[in-house]
Design a protein around this nucleic acid. Sequence first.
DNA 1: ACCATTATGACAATATGTTGTCAAATAGGA
DNA 2: TCCTATTTGACAACATATTGTCATAATGGT
Lengths: 155, 155
Amino acid sequence: MVYTGHSSKGAALTKLILASFPFHGALMAAGERLTALSGLTSARWQVLSVIARAERPETVANIARNMGLTRQAVQRVANDLAATGLVAFAPNPHHKRAVLVMLTATGQARFQEMSERQVPWANALADHLNKTHVDAAACVLGELAKLFEHRVGEP
Amino acid sequence: MVYTGHSSKGAALTKLILASFPFHGALMAAGERLTALSGLTSARWQVLSVIARAERPETVANIARNMGLTRQAVQRVANDLAATGLVAFAPNPHHKRAVLVMLTATGQARFQEMSERQVPWANALADHLNKTHVDAAACVLGELAKLFEHRVGEP
DNA sequence: ACCATTATGACAATATGTTGTCAAATAGGA
DNA sequence: TCCTATTTGACAACATATTGTCATAATGGT
């Protein structure tokens, strides 16, 4: 493929972006397969994870900010999780509308189950990779996310 | 954050995966902003790009395979593109059902417009990054996509 | 030539995420 | 205190992508 007009770095970045699409698709598919064994979906597992890893109960809007998603997307998933009994809403003493989301006992157990599958999976995958490159990749993606948010290069 | 049970490489991979979510979200948002100026959307631009860069007209199913998406997803977008006159379907001498997708003159012009915006955008972003790291990142994402597809580490 | 398998497009149901809008709750400055 | 701006959850409309199902077209082995 030709990258007409791209600088050397620009071509490299475009290649990275083009590589990220199949990566994301394959990651989502793998996530679905892993989570399906727990009766979860990838999206619900992600939200559940953020809630489980948080030090204290958070509001939906806060969870959304942590995940880089919109409030509404997380709200709908959180409602689904509540409907299936994995999370529950608790009153927020600091805010009448913005209630706090907490794992139920079932939710904690489900998260634990998922972790027990996710950890050996990540370890097995990582064995095929160069740690330095993986660290560099995570670093680049983090930097790029910031650049995107700051609208760098946009007209 | 603690990565209980993870190997050193496994923890690095999990960090990469967690970094990929906000990256993907921010990339999609940037894509929407770039494409909105052409009256396109990110998904339609991606499909249009694959068609434009292909050496010869392809079928919808082929395009889907190239993109790592399902046939049906690409079919719907392709139908949308056809409805807005950016692509057209041509009979396939080798297959009665699987028609070929081609850019119209309008579609070519629209793709050209988008390229003229995308190239300086990628160049400006890439100026803030280390090319070696970007290359490594693209390489890691490509390798991971293959590992995901081969179900490595899955029970 | 025949038949089983695979590939393809059409269609429907569902999951996920976005934007827009609204009213209530909160925060911050005059 | 009061007024404005922001934040929040609820709701609706829509874009995107998935799975499943179906009928038709192509393929490959016997």
